[in-house]
């Protein structure tokens, strides 16, 4: 019962972060802010969802389930490494390629139009 509650809370929080990331990718004005939303949102949400699933596996405790939970946690660690690094690599590539940074002046121009 407690395990189920923890699991539901974690997975729902993760889905909330997913929604945040998705909205950010659509709504933010330039490449860098969009990567910011995608990178942070996805890392956090995948982390929460996978930890939630691991907790769910541990609810019915046995050696096999513990092994599955351990594997899920390994995936979590792996994503925590890979996702921020790939965000960093993309941003860096964008910077080298000369993507423009969105500033306050752009906002004024947009509102004048």
């Amino acid at each position: 019962m407690i395990v189920d509650t923890i699991c539901i809370v974690l997975v729902s929080l993760g889905l909330l972060f997913f929604v945040g990331g998705a909205v950010g990718v659509i709504r933010f004005p330039d490449f860098y802010t969009r990567m910011h939303a995608a990178g942070k949102g996805d890392t956090m949400s995948v982390f929460l969802v996978l930890v939630g699933l691991a907790v769910y596996q541990l609810g019915d405790f046995s050696l096999g389930n513990a092994l599955v939970a351990g594997k899920i946690l390994f995936i979590t660690v792996f994503i925590m490494w890979a996702s921020p690094t790939s965000t960093h690599a993309l941003i860096r590539a964008g910077l080298e390629e000369g993507q423009k940074v969105w500033t306050r002046d752009d906002k004024k121009e947009e509102s004048e139009k």
Binding site: F78, W81, A82, T85, A89, A93, E96, E97
Partner: peptide
């Protein structure tokens, strides 16, 4: 191709060092 013109990035390099063996 001009994607990585500079020398290898420290962050990317370290992460790949960790990840490739795994």
């Amino acid at each position: 191709p001009t994607l990585y013109t500079k020398k290898p990035d420290l962050i990317i390099d370290t992460t790949c060092r960790l990840m490739i063996p795994i």
